[in-house]
Simulated scan of single mutants.
Amino acid sequence: MYNRTMLFVSSNISSTQTGGGVCSMRNLELCEKILGLDNVEIYALNAFSFMGKSFFVKILSLLKAMFKLLMGYSNGSTWNTDKKIVQLIKEKGFDFVFIDSSLNGLLVKRIKTETTTQVICFFHNCEKNMVIGQWKTGSPLSILRLWAVIKNEKKTCKYADYIIALNKRDNNLIEKNYKRKVDLLLPISLKDTVKDKKIENRKIGSPKKGLFVGSYFFGNVDGLKMFIHNVLPHTDMQLTVVGKGMKKLNIDNSKVTIYDGVKSIASFYIDADFVIAPIVSGGGMKVKIAEAMMYGKKIVGTPEAFQGYEKIPCSYICETYSDFVETINSLSGFSYNTCVREYFLSDYETNTQVDSLKKIVL
């Protein structure tokens, strides 16, 4: 371990049912592994949420959120919150602050103008392009965030000592939008949670068991609906959908079973013959791809789903509905594939990323 200290600032570390939350926990685990548990302190930001609120409280929360956006604050930041964080940095003299988002640029500026602490910022994706993508795919209110998003990402790029992104595409978008090159590419990785589980290696039968894992997010929802409407009727498969909020799909189809907000997805991966990823938009990297590799599963997905990944054994890139139909109908062999899991262990298990992050924090 090393005698350096870090404040880890994130709004995502309690959201482990989303890809972003999983990635945030990976970031935290890497920092703790390099610096030691006692040398990393967590500051959890409270991101905007409607969950568990009455109608009137929701309206009040929305008005407050809109006011914060007009002031340029986003992702849990406020003037008072940022002040508290800077005061904490001054009191404890952290060597680094790891800000787990590109959306806290006002905080980054404040830290760099009031302290000498080095700031590391992690781009989960290029948020500007994500917001525009949401707007173009039928979420018009998302455009209300755009001004605050651009303002914060600009300041992140201007003031942060180090910027980390997941893949080359995000690096190119960041450079194009904000004229700043990324300092480190740190692909998604996962802690291996399968090593102690027994996975039955059975032949793929009839009907085939397909699995989709993902939360109710525009990139997931649009692609999944198109898959169910245009691909599923022409295949010999049953589809299981697992993800936070996915009951809102309201799909009445005998070939589809939906599980919303489960505590553990392990049994679903183990039971599946293969994983589908018909994702049509988004950014960053898709955590569900790494998860599927961890369980040794064949993966059938769009080019977007595989963004940031090198060629994965037993994976199939499908650009059209007919590609999906032909690929799924031709799948054979076994539900567990050793070559896929070995590839995960060699390239996408979290321990493989330690040396990369050490280049910045040591």
Rank of each mutant, 00 (worst) to 15 (best):
Asn220Glu: 02
Asn220Lys: 03
Val221Arg: 00
Val221Ser: 02
Asp222Val: 14
Asp222Asn: 13
Gly223Met: 01
Gly223Cys: 01
Gly223Ala: 05
Gly223Val: 00
Leu224Met: 09
Lys225Ile: 08
Met226Glu: 13
Phe227Gly: 01
Phe227His: 00
Phe227Asp: 00
Phe227Gln: 01
Phe227Pro: 00
Ile228Met: 07
Ile228Arg: 04
Ile228Asp: 10
His229Ile: 04
His229Pro: 00
His229Arg: 14
His229Met: 03
His229Leu: 05
Leu232Ser: 13
Leu232Phe: 12
Pro233Phe: 09
Pro233Trp: 12
Pro233Ile: 10
His234Val: 04
His234Phe: 13
Thr235Asn: 01
Thr235Ile: 11
Asp236Ser: 15
Asp236Asn: 15
Met237Arg: 03
Met237Asn: 04
Gln238Asn: 15
Leu239Trp: 13
Leu239Tyr: 14
Thr240Gln: 13
Val241Gln: 05
Val242Ala: 12
Gly243Cys: 08
Gly243Met: 03
Gly245Glu: 07
Met246Tyr: 11
Lys247Cys: 06
Lys247Trp: 10
Lys247Thr: 10
Lys248Asn: 15
Leu249Arg: 07
Leu249His: 12
Leu249Met: 13
Asn250Thr: 06
Asn250Tyr: 06
Ile251Pro: 07
Ile251Leu: 13
Asp252Lys: 08
Asp252Met: 03
Asn253Tyr: 10
Ser254Ile: 07
Ser254Asp: 14
Lys255Asp: 08
Lys255Pro: 05
Val256Arg: 09
Thr257Val: 13
Thr257Asn: 11
Thr257Ser: 15
Thr257Gly: 05
Thr257Leu: 08
Ile258Cys: 10
Tyr259Lys: 06
Asp260Leu: 02
Asp260Asn: 11
Asp260Lys: 02
Gly261Met: 04
Gly261Tyr: 04
Val262Lys: 08
Val262Asn: 06
Lys263Phe: 06
Lys263Glu: 14
Ser264Tyr: 10
Ile265Thr: 15
Ala266Glu: 14
Ser267Ile: 09
Ser267Phe: 05
Phe268Cys: 01
Tyr269Val: 08
Tyr269Trp: 12
Ala272Asp: 09
Ala272Met: 09
Asp273Glu: 11
Phe274Pro: 00
Ile276Thr: 12
Ile276Pro: 07
Ala277Val: 12
Pro278Gly: 08
Pro278Leu: 05
Pro278Ser: 10
Ile279Asp: 02
Ile279Trp: 01
Ile279Arg: 01
Ile279Ala: 03
Ile279Ser: 00
Val280Gly: 07
Ser281Pro: 01
Ser281Ala: 12
Gly282Tyr: 04
Gly282Cys: 03
Gly282Ser: 04
Gly284His: 02
Gly284Gln: 04
Met285Arg: 05
Lys288Ser: 01
Ile289Glu: 10
Ala290Arg: 02
Glu291Val: 11
Ala292Met: 00
Ala292Glu: 03
Ala292Ile: 01
Met293Asp: 00
Met293Asn: 01
Met293Ile: 03
